[in-house]
Design a binder for these strands. Structure first.
Lengths: 331, 331
DNA sequence: ATGCCTATTGAAAACGATTAGAAAAAATGA
DNA sequence: TCATTTTTTCTAATCGTTTTCAATAGGCAT
């Protein structure tokens, strides 16, 4: 039924060993053999079964990127970075989505245990960090875009605390004193860190923390809208709002805009992620840009290096972020 | 080094065959054996090597979704649909991106030839349809969200011609006579079909086709902006614009808005895809909604059915789309 | 012709699972 | 008890590769 290396060998009048050698460009094989095998391969339309190959070699040359969903658009650049790094070393990148279900995430990591992939990159881990850390001792795992709350695993991200601090400080520098924060109820390490940075900036500026100015929602634009509504109901309204994602900021801006507030004057907005839409609407949104492509490229490179290395690199790399200043902060 | 089924057998004092039977919940195995094996598995932390299993069984229980990039946000629902259909039948869904490079798409299809996955769904095929058709005779391939220009392969999509017709007719029904079309230079079958529908609607309404009212660009919002700029420079300006994607429409609306046109009155806009942002900004965008989740679910179900079937189903299924009417068409 | 070296080759043993078929053990019936 | 059936177990073959190791062929120098 299926054409195997044996059929090729028979057709080419050589042994399977020779066919294998030709297929893998081994040097010690005669020109005649090369031709005969290539001709047979061509004639039979043979293509090698990777299950056999991978089993024998005990490697698949594939790495798995585990994401929550494909919805977050900035994953795209991260994945591009990973691909570039992987392709140049002969690896393929496969993607799988957890749908933000820790159990399913674990199931996907099973592809590592069962040797269906050589390594995995978690782009938004939901399972607890102790488990991940434990697994990383046996398997090639890295974390990207996030960090675990404990050290001990290869991790490529930005300094989210610092980014939160920078954005908030920028608003403070603009003379703002009542700065709202919109973040998520379900805490990823990055949002925890961004909130920490927000608080530190306030503290350093001598601005008292006001819990009424922190809104906990989800990642949707609706959250931004509702948060903004809450904030603007307050007696002591905020004069600036920092959100941990652009989507949220945009939702908030829509509300403020529709209710007669002059964005960039009455109230400033700072987002996070620099998504496509952040500069599509007037006023354009100031935001934190993180080096997505570079993070992806870096994590893949280091993960592959780890797979070959005696002693794996388990450092955390924080790549530089930058502030993009636009009309929403009066720039 | 690695724990194999042999180690488990030794630990449990049974043969590898028995271990395998326990692992696969075969009925003809004693309770004692089950316990002994489970204990050994637990103790050794064994997890089966799928390369061995898959090689022997000649199936991987994995199907591959091939997309251009993760950027197009509506892929997410399609993938969700595919996952739901697949999981319920014990299949995993892996995703891979072609970066819109036909060569790379071919490389990914190689996973099919090399038996690394059991089937593949193309969500935006770039390689020519003859090749795909040819391959589909030997391997389990389906197409989703698009159709090939030739019949003969399992395909789940919407009727794009009809959708283009419906959107354009709606604008005509609103009394519009000069309707612009923004589409893409690089033609996917869906954009070709949408344009056909646009033309048919004009024709049926007795409105002459005017090539100055068709703009060919890419999938970006910039294209929308530039197209709108071109259109509004014309002596005989359009009073409505249909774009083959929401992103483009939004870009166009931004331009019109900034130049003093009253959207929904002076000029109507109709988009395509019903993306999240289409209803985030005022005026909200009227658009064509396609059943993403259902398309994904359907294509996966039918593909899996095909893999078991004697005679594969090679029909094209067109699922119903719907028009979402909002302020941009004065609704 | 002989020996020695090198370049190619092939036979067979992996890799880690599943599974047919044989064998052993247990259960059943008389 | 023993023959017969049923249940459970094991041995060994198999899936399609790669790779070790031994064997062969050919070239060259003596």
């Amino acid at each position: 039924m299926n054409i195997t290396i044996k059929d090729v060998a028979r057709e080419a009048n050589v042994s399977v060993a020779t066919v294998s050698r030709v297929l893998n460009n081994k040097s010690n094989v005669s020109d005649e053999a090369v031709h005969a095998v290539n001709r047979a391969v061509e004639k039979l339309g043979y293509s090698p079964n990777f299950l056999g190959r991978d089993l024998r070699k005990s490697e698949t040359k594939r790495i798995l990127a585990i994401i929550g969903s494909t919805e977050e658009s900035f994953y795209n650049d991260v994945l591009r970075g990973m691909q570039d790094a992987c392709f140049s070393q002969g690896y393929d990148v496969l993607i799988a989505t957890t749908r933000n279900d820790p159990e399913h995430e674990m199931h996907l990591l099973g592809m590592l245990f069962s040797k269906a992939v050589d390594g995995a990159v978690l782009l938004a881990p939901k399972i607890d960090s102790k488990t991940i850390l434990e697994l990383s001792k046996k398997y090639s795992i890295a974390v990207c875009l996030e960090r675990l709350d404990t050290e001990g695993i290869l991790c490529v991200t930005i300094n989210n605390e610092r980014a939160g601090y920078d954005a908030t400080s920028y608003l403070i520098g603009k003379g703002r004193k009542r700065i709202g924060l919109i973040t998520t109820k379900i805490r990823s390490q990055s949002s925890v860190d961004r909130e920490k940075g927000y608080r530190r900036a306030l503290e350093e500026a001598g601005i008292p923390f006001d819990e009424r100015l922190v809104y906990y929602g989800d990642y949707s634009s609706d959250t931004g809208t509702r948060a903004c509504e809450e904030f603007l109901k307050l007696e002591n309204k905020p004069d600036a709002i920092f959100s941990i994602s652009d989507i949220i900021s945009l939702g908030a801006m829509v509300y403020a805009n529709n209710h007669g507030y002059k964005i960039g004057k009455d109230i400033l907005f700072f987002g996070f992620d620099n998504i496509l839409f952040s500069h599509m609407f007037i006023p354009r949104l100031s935001t934190v840009d993180q080096p997505c492509y570079l993070q992806g490229k870096t994590v893949a490179e280091k993960l592959i290096a780890n797979m070959k290395a005696e002693e794996p690199d388990i450092s955390t790399y924080m790549l530089p972020h930058s502030l993009i200043l636009r009309e929403s902060t009066g720039d």
